[in-house]
Amino acid sequence: MKPTYKIMRGKATLLAFLALSSLSARELRVVTTTTDLKSITEAVGGAYVSVSSISTGKQDPHFIDARPSYMIMLRRADLFIRIGLEMERGWESLVLEGSRNRKIQLGNPGHLDASAGIERLEVPTGPVDRSLGDVHAMGNPHYWLDPYNGRIIARTIADRLGQLDPEHAAEFASNAAQFTRRIDEAMFGSGAVEEMWAGQSNGERAPAQGGWSAILAPYAGTQVVTYHRSWSYFLRRFGLITVGELEAKPGIAPSPGHLLRLIDMMQTKQVPLIIMASFKGNKAPRMVAGKTGARIVKVPYSTNGNDVAVDYIAMLDQIVRQVAAGLKQ
């Protein structure tokens, strides 16, 4: 029996070697649920990954049909990355099950929830039911709109890519660090980043010399209204304060009665801006803007939401600049 065991062990080792070498010889196939996760994965994975996204960036990622073509995208994927926090709950399990791909099912290394490590906002503490609208029991899922969270997502993805492809783990970590630095430069301007990276200033005292931070700093404390509660992470990061939404309750279409109360409140507080995702309807915000004089900033909240938002950083850059332009007028 012993020789047989040895042969079997030898075969198993050979098979494991072949499996690993075939994996390392080719790109990791990654499918993300959103274009933002795709953009960050491409930045981190570099030449060692091929990435596709299920949503296009122009849709609300919650409301996607479980098309069979998505199951084909996932059929041979090595890694599936989702936003999580129930963002994809309407279709994720259907496409995962339909893909017949064991590697990417929940609980396997090929299944990554990018929200791991994120400080979640608006996590309900009391009873939650649907009379409150589409409240996400695990917290607000629009966390990618905070550039700081973009850094965390990059590290989370780098760690998982390194686990799946250990040979290139160091490059993934290095790419994530470079991506983090690009975000920092966009956020604070290259001068401030140089200072921080040189160790001349710790984070808490770093001067906001430029970048998004400086662009929006003059407006910190300004009260704004949003269409849906998608902007909490973005607004908190830049010190803007939301005082209401066009939707009376999350996910429920704006009602005339609620809009009248909102108009009254906006006039009283002199709210200057309505921020909305570009796929939302214009009718309600235009009506409110017409009555209050507030300006509407309609921006894509995902990469590839328009021709300018070509990657994650370009998408955030567009939002920052348009919000600033809206507040400047």
Partner: peptide
């Protein structure tokens, strides 16, 4: 002062809420 506050938020490690298991 507000700039400094914003920067501090960005660069300080944020506390994490515990990820509770959902059965």
């Amino acid at each position: 002062r507000m700039m400094t506050v914003i920067t501090a938020i960005a660069l300080t490690a944020t506390p994490l809420l515990p990820q509770t298991a959902q059965t």
